[in-house]
């Protein structure tokens, strides 16, 4: 006789049941979280803005194929030699050498995603591993790692990046991503460490120890799944800061000159002297930076509510 769980029939003794339950568990958990997430006005706004930028980033792959002059870096409109305002062929106008600004904006969205997500990912992985090891090991190792984290945390990352890039010349975009990641792990590792400290003495960890599990196994099998949601939450905040740092760096002229990004667009509008008479060039990248960082911030806030039910308002699911 089939029993019904949430409208889905499950055969009690069926062979497929195991697989079904496994999938069901994760799917259900995800759907539940997603519902809370999307019903939250902050989360909804964040997702919508993010979706728009994602479409833009994807469009950046298509645009150069429509017409080679729409290539954000090397495509030049042969008829134009100074910066012009919006027109039918160039929706946002062109820069001072005749490159299409809309194409650059799309490319900038792609780069912002790449920089933001990859540096956030690196810093999260680094912060999570260090935090778990530090919290689990305790003692001297803990002290050493946490003091290192403290030192890095109080270093001004933008100044460090400026000094490094003036020392070694202009950086490739991936080196910038990597340096941002190195500068940003400590806050994550502090949070993960405190979570690990509370998990460390839970009986299920001790049970695993009694069974003879190694430290590595305990850390990655038992502690990691329990701290992962928190790490993802912090990832959204890291994305925000990575995008901002990269934009600031580019605007100051220390970005990757072979890579269009929103910060780079701002740098070009300033360097070419169009700052005050080309608002169609100045505003779009500026607004995009603000909106995208806002979107990730909202996402993080909404995720916070999913993870911590105490933050949810009364009367909402």
């Amino acid at each position: 006789m089939p029993i019904w769980i949430r409208g889905l029939p499950i055969d009690v003794r069926g062979r497929t049941k195991g697989v079904f339950m496994l999938k069901n568990h994760y799917v259900q958990r995800f759907l539940q979280s997603w519902k809370i997430f999307i019903e939250n006005p902050l989360g909804k706004t964040g997702v919508i803005i993010l979706f728009v930028f994602m479409v833009m980033a994807l469009a950046s792959f298509v645009v150069p194929h429509i017409n080679p002059m729409y290539d954000p870096m090397i495509g030049i409109d042969p008829n134009i030699s100074i910066s012009t305002g919006p027109s039918l062929t160039h929706w946002l106008g062109t820069d001072n050498v005749g490159r299409d600004l809309f194409a650059q904006l799309l490319e900038g969205a792609k780069v912002a995603f790449i920089v933001g997500l990859s540096s956030a990912f690196f810093s999260i992985v680094l912060g999570m591993v260090i935090g778990m090891i530090s919290g689990y090991a305790g003692g001297t190792l803990d002290t050493f790692l946490m003091r290192t984290a403290d030192i890095i945390m109080v270093l001004p990352s933008l100044v460090i990046l400026l000094i490094l890039s003036s020392l070694f010349g202009q950086f490739n975009i991936w080196i910038i991503v990597f340096i941002i990641a190195i500068m940003r792990w400590p806050a994550v590792s502090r949070v993960i460490r405190s979570q690990t400290l509370s998990l460390k003495h839970r009986p299920f960890i001790e049970a695993s120890k009694v069974a003879g599990a190694s430290h590595l196994r305990i850390i990655f099998r038992h502690i990691m799944p329990n701290v992962l949601p928190l790490a993802f939450l912090y990832m959204t905040f890291r994305v925000t800061s990575a995008i901002l740092v990269e934009a600031a760096l580019s605007f100051l002229g220390f970005g990757d000159p072979s890579q269009v990004s929103w910060g780079m667009m701002l740098q070009w509008v300033w360097k070419s002297g169009n700052m005050f008479h080309a608002p169609y060039w100045l505003l779009p990248p500026g607004i995009s930076i603000s909106l995208l960082t806002l979107a990730f911030y909202l996402l993080g806030r909404a995720m916070d509510e999913v993870l911590d039910p105490r933050l949810r308002k009364e009367g909402r699911a």
């Binding site: 009986p203 001790e206 038992h222």
Partner: peptide, 27 residues
Amino acid sequence: QMIFQDPYQSLNPHLSIAQTIGEPLVV
């Protein structure tokens, strides 16, 4: 081996029953 006091604390919520019981064998 040991059996712990609180059954709500002694099982990892992220592991299935099979994974929990099978762990000593795996280890």
